[in-house]
Design a protein around this nucleic acid. Structure first.
Lengths: 343, 343
DNA sequence: TTCTCTACTGTGAACGCTCACAGAAGCATG
DNA sequence: CATGCTTCTGTGAGCGTTCACAGTAGAGAA
């Protein structure tokens, strides 16, 4: 048997070739390929041997043409790509989804919808049925692409609770609010009472929920919720530094800061250092995400870990279930407090 | 006209529907779709109008079935995924490739070949013709997947010069050696003469070339090439720190260090700081990559910028040319010295 | 007129697969 | 012995395209 290693691409064997080789019909080969029900053991064995011998791989285009499925899913990132691509957690998510899908032999198509043109092109591509479903990373409110896909009945699973989309859309998210609660409780347990917060953007679910958790715990502990202690950021390092400066100016007696992302927390550490405050002695700092930035910071950050590997696995599971006809579902996964040197 | 926004997925219109709507035949519609030669202006106009009215999108599976092309390409990452996924430059590369392909209406399939099983599955998938070509990020020597693909005649473009693959494989790379030369010349120009180096792994082209550039410039400048000044790392932060310690122990009079990656350079800065050396006064430090780590470090790192956006664009250009029948090509792109505070 | 050439259009076949259906064989049941 | 049931197998049709080829119409040349 000569393999096609001469440089030119050989025509791959078809189901016909396998059938001839195994001495059965196309139908039998097809049945072996798809589950193997109603096939005699001897026939199945002959077919499998023929497949091995010929190196046959199913032609997915031909299959898709008749089944109407594409057996592929899209990984769609809308809006501010920079923010996500610089976030190492995004990488973990992308990798996790790719691997979880690979286990089902389903390729992942990476789709970046930045410009209006790209959005339209991608929407058309998806609604035309070229993917069976979409893993959506958007987290921005009122995403028109997401709404369009939902309306077109495309199976869809969002990462993080989508704002402004009806309850009809599946999502998988970490329990942001509970994570925030854990962190603030931790700060209270250290004896801190003037606890500031640098929030995330309030048009993202994470931003909203983390702030809500902060407020809840303070209220529950009977600590005054001083609005001077609340400043807003956009998850960037620079906004963390600026936020901490504002915080110090408005409430110099601050003795702890809950920061809604590790990247911002890095900025907060810088600002505190410049202001001559020691961490954690004078001010304790808690981050969120457990990103590499957390261990790169000095002192290393106490932070909230989101279970990104489980999130990606769940996203794929829910999407495949939905493609299989099940109803949309929401999955919330627990977070974990990681204690390090900044508190 | 009712759009399919009722929740269920409607059957999309076919080329037949468009033909009927436009009052022409399938053949004419097909010709309009593929370049529009030998089509009368009136027919073309009618077809385009019908396409707009029906919202027709070509069924790529049916097209692929007959053309034998898939009109998609794979982005293949082999071996140590962590190393790459943590590297922000990898993100720029992935994003750039996706966008460059999108401009040609070609989807990118993300493929991660970690385990042996995954490798085999992906190799089969690719050689079966499910993608037209592959963008390869491997940089590891003697990659069996790459060799297999090359042997099967799959169009292939590597990122970085592949070691041990014949000259038959295309690649796009930054000029590592020249970048290293620039950096070491820069250090020499500052008056430093005891210039150490923390190398990258010597089974990667980048690691080899950057060290070669270092040696070249020292030889050319007539500076003694003291082997005690050469220590090896693996691109990780930790290996940079360990390397610097070794360097200080073996050559306490070192007055500059060329580090083959920014991440390692961060580790070097930490080690120097702990040893009480001031940067850049006592020891100048030069990195490589211009990653976010470079500006996150203190002092901010002087480094070598690789043109990642151009690399991705070139990889796609070369791959598409090769899919179109052209011969393999090698492209080397210039680097740039970015001066900051560490030198 | 007739022929040739160019510009355009329509049609059947084919790509490789799955699906529905029909049929065969084996075996138990009436 | 017919009948039904179960298990298995083969066959034709068809998915939505493209491609090759045949055919038409109109212009210009002989």
């Amino acid at each position: 048997m000569t393999m096609g290693n001469t440089g030119g691409r050989r025509k791959p064997p078809t189901i016909h070739d396998v059938a001839r080789e195994a001495g059965v019909s196309r139908g039998t080969v097809s049945r072996v390929l798809n589950g193997g029900h109603y096939v005699s053991p001897t026939a199945a064995e002959a077919v499998n041997a023929a497949i091995r011998r010929t190196g046959y791989v199913v032609n997915r285009h031909a299959r898709s043409l008749i089944t109407g499925r594409s057996d592929s899913v899209g990984f769609l990132l809308t809006e501010p790509q920079e923010r996500f691509f610089e976030d190492p957690n995004f990488n973990v998510l992308l990798r996790g989804c790719t691997q979880a899908l690979a286990a089902h032999d389903i390729p992942l198509l990476l789709m970046l919808a930045g410009t209006v043109d790209e959005r339209r092109r991608i929407t058309r591509y998806i609604t035309a049925g070229h993917v069976d479903g979409v893993l959506l990373v958007s987290s921005h409110s009122g995403d028109p692409v997401a709404e369009e896909l939902r309306a077109a009945g495309v199976p869809l699973v969002a990462c993080g609770k989508p704002i402004g989309l009806g309850s009809k859309v599946s999502y998988v998210a970490a329990d942001d609010r509970d994570g925030a609660r854990d962190m603030v409780r931790h700060l209270l347990a250290l004896g801190r009472r003037r606890i500031g917060v640098v929030t995330g953007p309030q048009d993202t679910p994470g931003g909203v929920e983390r702030l809500a958790g902060y407020r809840e715990v303070l209220a529950e502990a009977g600590v005054e919720c001083d609005e001077r202690l609340v400043v807003s950021g956009d998850y960037s390092r620079a906004s963390g530094e600026a936020g901490a400066k504002r915080l110090l100016a408005r409430a110099p007696d601050v003795d702890a800061v809950f920061v809604a992302s590790d990247l911002m927390a890095q900025g907060v550490l810088t600002a505190l250092h410049r202001a001559g405050r020691r961490v954690p002695q004078d001010v304790a700092v808690g981050g969120f995400d457990d990103s590499p930035a957390a261990v790169a910071a000095s002192p290393e950050l106490t932070t909230i870990r989101q279970p990104w590997d489980r999130i990606s696995a769940e996203m794929v599971r829910v999407l495949l279930a939905q493609i299989g006809g099940e109803d949309p579902a929401a999955v919330i996964l627990p977070t974990e407090l990681v204690k390090r040197d900044s508190t």
